[in-house]
């Protein structure tokens, strides 16, 4: 009896968190699951009819945007990784007393609203602006070309907006890396590149894993960048969901798309974590 009660203690501690999840995560989620299998129209209202065909219809109709969202999010995540790894490495290993300052620089853009940041890119990248004319000068953009309203602008915008999400976890895992392990590797006749490949990168994997998820997941559902920097040819699934909720008032389709996206991402993550072997990862990260 006494022992049982002691067993319960951790649950009491978890109670506020569990209640929070129940009220603010689970209830809306369950509600929207219900909406996703409703049918009706804005005049008559929408009733629960278990119309699972909402899913196949929505996926059929909006597959190009789903696919595009995944491609854009993937591209932006790869770009972020390529930029963030050297940056985080530099901050963790070489920045010395500038560490705090550089980390502040990384997070500073977050002090401004995402919409404002993106609108300012809209103004910087105008067709007749300085940036585009320089790009034309060095031949990156054709004479008749433009930057805005292209896939590149949208991917660039996403990469820009989510970069700090990649830098911070990478920095965290590189910073606590035990440097004696690298020294040991070089003592055992590993060249610097080999030590980097065989010691630093594997030990940074938890950071790579966390960072790429923190980028990829919100990027897939992003709609601000496509709306402001793209044209209708760059619309992502987030734009479709928003339009269906607010303009078309087709709540079931919007909800079905949201859940399909959640499912898709969950499947993707499980494959990804299986590939990276998260079980071992968490042990390493300890």
């Amino acid at each position: 009896m006494f022992r049982d009660r002691r067993k319960l203690i951790p649950w009491y501690f978890a109670l506020p968190g569990l209640l929070w999840l129940l009220v603010f995560f689970l209830l809306p989620l369950v509600n929207q699951v219900g909406v996703s299998v409703m049918s009706g129209d804005p005049e008559a209202g929408y009733d629960l009819t278990w119309s699972f065909s909402n899913y196949s219809d929505a996926i059929d109709q909006y597959w190009p945007q789903i696919e595009r969202s995944l491609v854009y999010a993937f591209a932006a995540t790869v770009i972020d990784l390529a930029i963030a790894f050297p940056l985080a490495y530099f901050i963790a290993f070489k920045a010395g007393r500038w560490k705090g300052f550089l980390l502040l620089m990384v997070v500073l853009p977050f002090f401004m609203s995402q919409v404002l940041r993106t609108v300012s890119w809209q103004l910087i990248l105008t067709d007749n602006g300085w940036v585009v004319s320089q790009l034309k000068g060095i031949g990156i953009v054709g004479d008749e070309g433009r930057v805005l309203a292209t896939s590149w602008a949208v991917i660039g915008g996403i990469a820009y907006n989510y970069l700090p999400f990649m830098v911070l976890p990478l920095y965290a895992s590189l910073d606590r890396l035990d440097r004696r392990l690298i020294e040991a590797a070089t003592d055992l006749y590993a060249s610097r590149p080999t030590a980097f490949r065989k010691v630093t990168i594997p030990l940074a994997t938890p950071g790579i894993f966390a960072g790429s998820l923190l980028c990829f997941i919100p990027a897939t559902g992003d709609f601000v960048n496509a709306a402001l920097l793209g044209s209708s040819k760059q619309y992502m699934i987030g734009n479709v969901i928003q339009t269906n909720f607010l303009t078309v008032l087709d709540y079931p389709t919007a909800a079905a798309l949201s859940f399909f996206l959640i499912g898709l991402i969950l499947v993707g993550i499980s494959i990804y974590s299986a590939l990276l072997g998260t079980k071992n990862l968490t042990e390493v990260a300890g």
């Binding site: 219900g34 409703m38 009706g40 209202g45 929408y46 629960l48």
Partner: peptide, 9 residues
């Protein structure tokens, strides 16, 4: 709960 969540027309 789900049924009660029907959206009014």
């Amino acid at each position: 709960f789900l049924a009660a969540c029907g959206i009014k027309g």
